[in-house]
Design a protein around this nucleic acid. Sequence first.
DNA 1: ACCTCGACGTTATACGTAACACTTCGGCAG
DNA 2: CTGCCGAAGTGTTACGTATAACGTCGAGGT
Lengths: 344, 344
Amino acid sequence: MTSAQQPVPARPTSRDVARAAGVSQATVSLVLGGKWPGRVSEVTAQRVREAAVELGYRPNLAARSLRLGRTRTALLVVPALTNEFFARVYAGAAALAAEHDFGVVLYPSPDGTGPARDPFASARAALDGVIASSMAADALDALHGADLPLVMLDSDPSGTGPAAHVNLDIADGMRQVTDHLLGLGHRRFLHLASAVDTWTFAVRAEALHDALGAAGDATVRTVRAPLDVGAGREAAEQALAVAGERPTAIVCDDDILAAGACKAARRLGLRVPDELSVTGFDDLALATALEPELTTVRLPAEQVGERGMEALLAVLDGRPAEQGGLPVELVVRGSTAPSPTARA
Amino acid sequence: MTSAQQPVPARPTSRDVARAAGVSQATVSLVLGGKWPGRVSEVTAQRVREAAVELGYRPNLAARSLRLGRTRTALLVVPALTNEFFARVYAGAAALAAEHDFGVVLYPSPDGTGPARDPFASARAALDGVIASSMAADALDALHGADLPLVMLDSDPSGTGPAAHVNLDIADGMRQVTDHLLGLGHRRFLHLASAVDTWTFAVRAEALHDALGAAGDATVRTVRAPLDVGAGREAAEQALAVAGERPTAIVCDDDILAAGACKAARRLGLRVPDELSVTGFDDLALATALEPELTTVRLPAEQVGERGMEALLAVLDGRPAEQGGLPVELVVRGSTAPSPTARA
DNA sequence: ACCTCGACGTTATACGTAACACTTCGGCAG
DNA sequence: CTGCCGAAGTGTTACGTATAACGTCGAGGT
């Protein structure tokens, strides 16, 4: 069929399709674009579509982007994909994006230790919008400066700058955890908090203190650690070794820290949950890999990604973005039990 | 929000920079492109650079790609980012890519349950090459059909089609594990294998059987399970409940399965490592979150990504890709101990 | 005085697409 | 018959960039 003389089978263009179908390039664009329903007769359209399939035509995205000024690509800024939570957020965002012929490209956020490269230096020109997660305030400013549509995930809704927000009801999750433990008779708490300074963790601390304050007779100590098992273990171990009344429950900002707390307990000869209750946050796969399994708060990570992408698409379409918070759910497992002091 | 679009300062183009600097657009391209060192006098170049900074000029990537026919973007095909190993592969690949002004876009591989969308239907036009990991054979064919430069990670090096390979010395890792356990006196083994049918797991089984065969008096049973803790636990529990001589060591294809094996042991009242040794593979964060910590094989995941990207860049430059395998390392921790039968 | 040549720029062009503006043509009301 | 309309296409243009091809000008060789 092809009378092409080129030795290498060059990628066919819309003009090649036009030639094969006996129409003009404009008509090919009209047909394959899918818009302009009535502009081309069905018989012609059919011929064009067949030619396109025949030649294996794929539109050149670069040319399309250049023409339209849009790329159908969003940037997702996350701290690290090795954190399962963010990997799931990505999965959710990418899945919804794919349904709308959108792509998602990733950039690890500058969380202090991140790469110094400006994500927009190379990417900004090719982006339609940005979805950013758990940013520190300064990094956030750089995002606003890019004057691209912006959706913030799990971030301070009162933050400056025009941005849609998709938030988890973190405070409610922490409240549920606290109520659960208070109901089990616990009164002396250790809060194993993340050393990361973002809204999502600040909210945890606030909600915990609020809920404990309401209980009246509860006390809490706070120690902070980076988000990894070893650091969590060390911090918990030191805190538990302090003289005086030992806490009966450790509330962790994260399942990873909770895993550290469990290891600390075991090293000190404390049995979980009989002598020490431990709670996590996130409900990662890790939560059910441990023994005992972690009582934790399930966060709908994929949904966060989906809703984030949804919001971005809405903004790009000029529609208002849905703003509601996503519900979270306490999952009670084996790492929490009635306080030993209450039973005594 | 702002609904005004036109009065907003449009992104400056190279022509705007040219006007500001009092030169032609071509000169701007010459200066900012960085190639053609001697073509423009330093004083003019300086003026251009200043104008570019002044206006906040960013080259339009779509236009550049259209002109050059290349996108400086690679596709990384991985089964799932929620698996920490692949998240780390991505991190390695993305880091090296960034150093070369390359981007990496992800696509979850069609591993049977994956999305039905053809990654190339939307992406192929905008890609310079593909790095693919742990593919099933049929999915692999689709990749070859795309006639893009292809690098395979951790895949059968004897596979068909022209592709560079970056492989881990999986067989050596499994050999080390086996020798370690044999040295501890173990003779009855259970192989908790992945249900996924890829080269990387086939090699594990082969190496395990080879090493045990060399020992002469060792026996092994194999059970397979999907790569998640629950499935691993179930499979291990069933296998351990079988009447007859119980294995004294479980060799797992993966840390995740090993976590399942540990849970199974605990459910059956078997103490790890005293009554049952368990080994993993990958050295994920999970390995040190468990108690006892897992004896496992450390895989340089980031290096796999880096070397993969390196190989792709080499191919694109017409250089030969470095082909050597990456070494792995046995990490002995608390989940393995001398066989109880040997001590008896 | 003539030619050459290198240094420094500029002009022009093509990449592949989407969509605006235009043509062509048969039908149909006035 | 004229004028108008809608249907079905086509011609053309612009998006922003990189680079091939083409000036221009003064220095240096012969």
